[in-house]
């Protein structure tokens, strides 16, 4: 199974952390529903071109936070998630993406009021349905 997970090796965010966050977003957004089987650690490591050490760490983290569960000899599956936790993940992931965008703008030497202007322009375009 191919999952829409894309890691960026240039990001300062550790790779295992990127995997954890993208899984959480896929689960919270309903793209992966409860009970859905996940790729094995070895298969995901091959697809993402990373070591099983990194993948295992991501799966352990997700399991600890209650997003996935491992059944001995059967594999790894998406766990049942409470609605309020799903909501929380959605809010956090949107927040993170916007924060990253702002950081990118600042790294190009834009100031905050310029960033605000860009943001408002995007919102206006969306309102117009573009």
């Amino acid at each position: 199974m191919e999952l829409p997970i894309r890691i960026s090796k240039d990001s300062r965010e550790p790779i295992y952390h990127q995997i954890v966050n993208q899984f959480k977003a896929l689960i919270a957004g309903g793209h992966l529903s409860a009970g859905a089987p996940l790729p094995s650690i070895r298969a995901l490591s091959k697809d993402l071109e990373i070591s099983i050490i990194t993948t295992r760490r991501a799966y352990q983290d997700l399991e600890l936070q209650g997003f996935i569960k491992t059944l001995q000899g059967k594999g790894t599956f998406v766990a049942e998630i409470a609605e309020d936790l799903k909501e929380e993940v959605k809010v956090t992931s949107v927040h993170n993406i916007i924060e990253n965008a702002v950081d990118t703008a600042l790294s190009y030497d834009y100031n905050l009021s310029q960033v605000k202007e860009i943001f408002l322009t995007i919102l206006k375009d969306k309102e117009k349905g573009e």
Binding site: S45, K46, E49, S51, I52, I53
Partner: peptide
């Protein structure tokens, strides 16, 4: 043992 970068990227842990 391999000179194939794809083998190394996709399969290796170490």
């Amino acid at each position: 043992a391999s000179h194939q970068i794809d083998d190394i990227r996709k399969l290796s842990d170490y």
